[in-house]
Design a protein around this nucleic acid. Structure first.
Length: 315
DNA sequence: AAGCTAGACAACCGCAGCAAA
DNA sequence: GTTTGCTGCGGTTGTCTAGCT
């Protein structure tokens, strides 16, 4: 509905700014209710007009952001699931910082949430490795080491849930579920992204999230209060889920793909981490190793040992 | 118990693209 | 063709909180 057509104030935004001191900072419950009630009745759009007509002393931009990132009924709250992490890594490797585009493939997740996830989780690890998060080195490390491991962890979770060859990973209260077809390897394969996006060659599994707009919208009632939707939402305890004698013959192979000699070589020939990474200091100061925070470590001590052994990091 | 620190997330800012006047 | 306003996006900052010392 056209807000302008309903006889709202004809003041321009600049005039409005002068007349009414616009509020900033955190939204109050009253403001939220005003916004929700107004949009429920009149629909969204025309944000500047909407802000005025709803009696909110906020900018249109602020209203839009609040609605899209927090109040919208289909917005999902809670931790990023393994499948979502995998998607984020994959899609970011393809599109870069196109957060809104990435968010389109994660129903209920906002670009802001994904951006925050990337900055707080992923970039931290790049910093620990002393390489740029946008560098080819870091991207390939994600692609050829972390992402295959994420895939395997998803498989492990699926296998733990249902000991069949083809398992549906459906987490309680999770509106995005993924059917993980265990292809028996974590080598190069094909990934089927949501909404028909075909992933490229990593992982060796097909992940086909089975959400629909209909079921994703159910998050409004079940997840809108910050429910933790993923019991294993990150890689911290990854190895604790893998048997010592891993039955998967490709377990190490995937991680070793393309690595040779004293350097970490990607299929494209990139030579990794031969630039003097100080792993001793990393070991001493690295939060990845202690597992103390227990929430989102990509690598643990075994991973670090693996990196050192396999890739001969400078030490 | 108080202070400090880091993580997580909400919110703001600046810019670009677009459409209407 | 130009101006103006709106919207959306990505980057950045601010705030809150939990954990640690």
């Amino acid at each position: 509905m056209d807000v302008k057509a309903r006889g709202c104030s004809a003041n321009t935004q600049s005039e409005e700014d002068q007349i009414m001191d616009l509020r900033r900072g955190p939204w109050t419950v009253e403001e939220d209710l005003k916004l929700i009630n107004y949009i429920t009745t009149h629909g969204e759009g025309r944000w500047n007009s909407l802000a005025r007509c709803a009696g909110l002393k906020r900018t249109g931009k602020s209203c839009r952001l609040r609605w899209l990132n927090y109040l919208r009924p289909d917005v999902r709250r809670g931790s990023i699931t393994l499948e979502e992490q995998l998607l984020i890594l994959e899609l970011h490797s393809r599109w870069g910082n196109r957060w809104s585009k990435i968010a389109q493939h994660l129903p209920g997740r906002t670009d802001n949430e994904i951006k925050n996830y990337w900055r707080t989780r992923v970039q931290k690890h790049a910093k620990q490795l002393k390489c740029d998060v946008n560098s080819k080195q870091f991207k390939d490390t994600m692609r050829y080491l972390w992402m295959p491991r994420l895939v395997e962890r998803i498989q492990a979770a699926a296998a733990a849930a249902t000991p069949t060859s083809t398992t549906a990973v459906t987490e309680a209260s999770t509106t995005t579920s993924a059917s993980v077809t265990t292809a028996g390897n974590i080598g190069m394969g094909q990934m089927v992204m949501p909404q028909g996006v075909i992933g490229n060659d990593f992982g060796g599994v097909q992940i086909t999230p089975s959400y629909t707009p209909e079921n994703s919208s159910t998050a409004a009632s079940s997840d809108s209060l910050g429910t933790q939707v993923s019991p294993v939402s990150d890689l911290t305890d990854y190895y604790s889920n893998i048997p010592v004698n891993n039955p998967n013959p490709d377990y190490l192979q995937a991680s070793q793909v393309g690595y040779s000699g004293s350097s970490l070589i990607s299929p494209s020939g990139t030579n990794y981490y031969n630039h003097g990474t100080d792993f001793q200091s990393l070991e001493q100061n690295n939060p990845w190793l202690d597992g103390a925070d227990g929430s989102y470590n990509f690598l643990n001590a075994e991973d670090f040992f693996f990196l050192q052994q396999q890739f001969n990091f400078n030490m």
